[in-house]
Design a binder for these strands. Sequence first.
DNA 1: TATGAATGAGAGTTCATTCAT
DNA 2: TATGAATGAACTCTCATTCAT
Lengths: 205, 205, 205, 205
Amino acid sequence: MGRTGDGEALPQRLLAVATRLFAEKGFEKTSVQEIVEAAGVTKGAMYHYFAAKDDLLKEIYQRLLRMQRERLEAIMARDQPVALRLRAAAADVVVTAIANLDDATIFLQSMHLLSADRRRAVRAARREYHERFRELVEEGQRAGTFRADVPADLAVDYFFGAVHHLGAWFRTGGRLTAEQVGAHFADLLLSSLRPDPPAEPGPSR
Amino acid sequence: MGRTGDGEALPQRLLAVATRLFAEKGFEKTSVQEIVEAAGVTKGAMYHYFAAKDDLLKEIYQRLLRMQRERLEAIMARDQPVALRLRAAAADVVVTAIANLDDATIFLQSMHLLSADRRRAVRAARREYHERFRELVEEGQRAGTFRADVPADLAVDYFFGAVHHLGAWFRTGGRLTAEQVGAHFADLLLSSLRPDPPAEPGPSR
Amino acid sequence: MGRTGDGEALPQRLLAVATRLFAEKGFEKTSVQEIVEAAGVTKGAMYHYFAAKDDLLKEIYQRLLRMQRERLEAIMARDQPVALRLRAAAADVVVTAIANLDDATIFLQSMHLLSADRRRAVRAARREYHERFRELVEEGQRAGTFRADVPADLAVDYFFGAVHHLGAWFRTGGRLTAEQVGAHFADLLLSSLRPDPPAEPGPSR
Amino acid sequence: MGRTGDGEALPQRLLAVATRLFAEKGFEKTSVQEIVEAAGVTKGAMYHYFAAKDDLLKEIYQRLLRMQRERLEAIMARDQPVALRLRAAAADVVVTAIANLDDATIFLQSMHLLSADRRRAVRAARREYHERFRELVEEGQRAGTFRADVPADLAVDYFFGAVHHLGAWFRTGGRLTAEQVGAHFADLLLSSLRPDPPAEPGPSR
DNA sequence: TATGAATGAGAGTTCATTCAT
DNA sequence: TATGAATGAACTCTCATTCAT
């Protein structure tokens, strides 16, 4: 069949189980044995679908990157002022990251464990994503909507640092909803890019 | 003796070597054997000073946290307007993190590998540090210097996310110096906390 | 059908592929998966024709032994002086071994991997073959054509050692052709069996 | 201590045990677990001395090659006619191979399992050894003691084939002693190299 | 203060084989 | 006649840690 009694294809089930365990205990502290036991199969079954434990990680990364990329493209294509598009994109990436907090946590904690080749590939994909984001910022800078004295890539890295860090403090059911955090983060980003910087001395060159 | 021919006490040398290797290859991929070989001693010597491999990690954390905490206290004690103190603190944490980028990288990548007890302890120390930072923000909010419609802790987490993420992109000798990045980050933080937020709809409750 | 598009019956194709791979990489380092992939089928198909991986080995052995046995019988049946028949048989076994060097290599390298039962059977078949060869030697010894102070079976083992070792050094396209090597080997065998051994002290008892 | 209660250093004991098991069951069918159990230690102890299972094989090879090489050198250095020296060398290599039949058996059966690098190194060492042997043959050919119409290297390969094959039939306590087999083999070699080859047609070029 | 041999538990991975379809 | 998902057992190797010296 290719299906088990649990109503989900085995590769997907293995991936779901692995995602949960990796987020809970970390990639290296999660043994293949634990994964297959949690999925109710044997190691051989897992190695039938995934050539190595690393592959599970790779799949999780690709899944997350693909989704974020698609959402960003959709937002960028809107017919709206650049500030609105950036705000929407920023809020959306936060909400999406929270909705897939396990994936995002794993991403952050485990990328350094990938083989050099894989790491390079994942980094390239992420860089490409950041560059799309940066284009939005630069567009606003050219239009005078955003201040131009902040390097666009620095602003983007600043923002994504905050996003990646969500897993360290955000708790579902806590004081703020994912949407509220998204709105706040977007607001902070937009505020920090407003022209007319504060009177205090900024960085001079 | 307590000193080896290399002019540094053995515990410190072990710590320095471990810091470099952990940052390079990750904590779990660095074996005790590699550490002692790089330090030019044997395992027994290491276990004489550190009860476990974990202890090296703990020491690295404590060293970083202690330093950051001391610097923050000194800045907070200044007799300056709150905005200046926050700006100074923000810029300083960036410069310090970059100056100790190995430590900061390890912090981020390996905390989930500590035993539950140790992790709790480290988290508590870091939370305390963040709270001191938050007090600055709240002081400014009460004084009307900073906008009050952004939760202070969210703003702090936002900022420290960016700081923790430095290791992912900052390169010594790159386009920007540590000081320039610190100034930019501080500027972005202060900008985002300015009163009269942008006209676009912010988050409502 | 029993035939694939490649114009060869599947069992034969599997055997041919396995022979090549076993000779290249060794029996144990060749996985069933590799064999079926190289043959362009799936595992199930192979297990339909061969009950076990061992069976492929058995077939290769039997094929080689059967052929050598048949050729030896034909030569022994000739109406020629015994020296000519032994020379012809010796040269032929060399040429045949070289023509089927993969089979011979596998024979030598992998026999110890067979199950005890199979190994016994293969050994018995080979012993029988060697005995036919020995009969030739003994016939010549009785007739005075060959020296009688060398045990016939020892001489045969000596010769077949050399034959089995061909795979270790013979290279097609090298300095000597298979026929030349066969002639030399036959010559060395016949020479060593000539009466009137050399003057130096032979083995005394 | 570096010594166990059994009065032999552990690396040597492991090597001895491994040699016996490899000869009995083959390298690949002997697990590391079996080796260490037979030696009465744990896996870790073995890996403390041997970086890999392969290393045991390498050691066995080197031990055998070193010994054979030393004996050959000693014989070649004698002040004797070349025929006597070749006879002595041939008889000695047989006796030595029988005295270390386990090593020799393993050599033959398992060399193809070594990594490419190691295999190359072992082959080079063996080739060098064969070349020393060949020099003896060539010396005799130049002196007219041996027939010159047989390529010296072919004669050497012929002889060593027979030697390598000893493990397939020689049994201690059987009809012939190691010394008798050595004498016979040497006799066969010398006989086959006698000048004035048999009247029957030899290989023509 | 330091050595390094040895442990013991477990890691990821491989693979011949089975079997429902 | 053939598929390929799944098993289960075994494999080599790693490693933090201990302890007699």
